[in-house]
Structures are given as C-alpha cells and as structure tokens.
Amino acid sequence: MIELTRESLARVFPRAPQAVIEAFVAKQDVLTKAGVNATRTRLSYFFANIEHECAGFALKGLEESLAYTPERMAEVWPSRFPGGAAAVRARFGTAPSWQLKAFDEIYGNRMGNRPGSHDGSTYIGRGGPQWTGRDGYRECQARTGVPAVDQPKAVSQLDLQPEICAAFWAWKGLNAKADAGDFKGCVKLWNGGSNGLADRLHLMAGNDPIIQRMQSVDRILPIAKGMPGAPPTAKPPKDVVDAATVRERRVRTAAAGAGNEGAKQAGAAAHVALPTPVMAAGIGFAIAAVIVATVLIARKQQAVLANWF
C-alpha cells in the first residue's frame, strides 16, 4: 500500500486544515480498506476529485454554499427558470433565506429527498466528496457510523474526513474506473453527469471541471508516484481486472448467447427450407458484438496493467 505522509499530503492539499492532514495520516487503514491507496493511480484520481469538490478541504465549513443571487440561480438552472432572475424572484421572493426555499424545491423529490420537506436545503453537499441528498447521507451513515441523517453537519467534521471520503469512493465503485484509466468515467460517477458538472463549474469559480480535474491529475501524479510504498502485488490480480471489465464481459456473454440461439433457429429453419436472411443478420451482429467486446476487454486489461503502479 502507498504510505501517506504529512509532507506529501500538505503538497496535495496546501490549504487544508491541519486537522484534516493529521486525520489522513493517522487513519490510513481506512483508505486501505477501501483500496484507495492500493495504487498511485487510485490515489491520483481520489486526490484530484476531492481537491476539486471541496477546494482541497478549504471550502468554508466543508459545506456547499447556498449564497446564490437570483441571477446566479437562473444561470445554473436555466431550464427551470427560463425567465431568468425575474422568474427566480417571482418564485421565491427576496426575503432573507429565500435560497432555502429554492433549494427545498430544486432538490426536492430526488436523491431521496422528500417532496414538501426541507430535505433539499438540509442535505446539501458536505464533506470532502460533497455527499448530497437524503439517500446519500443515509448511505454515508450506513458505511461510516456517522449520524449523518439526523446530524448532517457531522459529515463536515474535519477529523472524520478519511472515513467520509473513503466511504464515498467505495459507494461509487471508483477503484474500477481508476484501474481502467477512465478518469472521465470516474468524474461522471462521482458527480452524476452534466448537471452536476455545471454546479461544480459554478462553485469552483468557473473553470471547466473536466479540464481542471485533468490538470489536477497531472499535478498530483508526480507526487503520487514519489510516495513511498508499492502496490500489494506486482501485477493486478484477477478480481481487479474483472471489476474493470464487468460491463464488457456481460455484453460479450449476452451476445454469444444470442448468437448461439440464432444459430439453432437458423439450423432448424434450414431443415424446412425457410429463408433465413434475418437470422443470418442477427447471428452476424452477435458475432460482431462478441468481437468488439473482446477487443474492449483486452484494451481495458492493458489499461489496468498500465495503471497498476
């Protein structure tokens, strides 16, 4: 496993509170259990996303800011407020804390948040990974024992960030994305797609989130490579490769099954002299799908090998 030192962590997160640095040094076993520090690639992906999500643990209170102006809210959710800032004001008014009403509606009835409740403004992004939504907080609590549902601010507790971050990483199954060298796929799982990326673009001062993350990886990778320690095995074990190629293997199995079934039907049809162009086309498609899936599996296997350092 890769050992984390105060010096290396301070270089990755120069603005992080000392309590966070000390927690990660003292609780490295938490990351080890989640497999985060098994390879330098995993650490690089982990660090880059955490750095972006919470400004390297410098985000005030490790809590998503609700200090939106009507103009900014309309900019972030243009489809919800086609009338611009005026539509936001008409909907939520301008009284103090109008943003709470807005978040209750915008985040209501999704991510496990109950409609007509204050879940939307309660379960906002918190902690290093920015856990969001009642379902996310419930998952965080189940994985860490932190009373996240009843005490949401506990997710931002500085000395608990190793547990909070490792639990999110494990929940999203991000080892497989890192092992395959799929950084964009990692980001998509982390933050849920284009809407999440737009929010991140706004909260992190307007830089393209994917580019910023890739820059973060480029910056962090030499540091990660320089850390003491090595992967637990010289080559990635079979279960690691299997985890990275699970989707492709499912496609190949399904296509092979369809091809076999099509061949049986074509054989049966031949005995009664029925035309089988559709069957032949189906068999050909299945064979092509098997070939494509096999090629993709081989490429991912090579990617896992290349990233196992």
Rank of each mutant, 00 (worst) to 15 (best):
A263P: 08
A263N: 08
A263M: 13
A263T: 13
K264Q: 11
Q265E: 15
Q265M: 05
A266L: 11
G267F: 01
G267C: 10
A268F: 15
A268I: 10
A269F: 12
A269N: 06
A270G: 03
A270F: 07
V272M: 08
A273M: 06
A273H: 03
A273F: 02
A273Y: 02
A273T: 04
A273I: 07
L274W: 02
L274V: 12
L274A: 15
P275Y: 02
T276F: 00
P277H: 05
V278R: 15
V278K: 13
V278S: 11
M279H: 08
A280T: 07
A280K: 09
A280Y: 03
A281F: 09
A281V: 10
G282I: 15
I283Q: 10
I283V: 07
I283C: 01
I283G: 02
I283R: 00
I283T: 05
I283H: 02
F285S: 15
F285H: 10
A286Y: 00
A286R: 00
A286L: 08
A286W: 00
I287F: 02
I287L: 10
A288E: 10
A288Y: 12
A289I: 04
A289R: 05
I291D: 14
V292C: 08
V292H: 09
V292L: 07
A293N: 02
T294G: 10
T294S: 11
T294V: 11
V295C: 04
V295M: 13
V295Q: 14
V295G: 06
L296H: 14
L296Q: 13
I297L: 15
I297M: 05
I297K: 03
A298H: 04
A298N: 12
A298E: 09
A298I: 14
A298L: 08
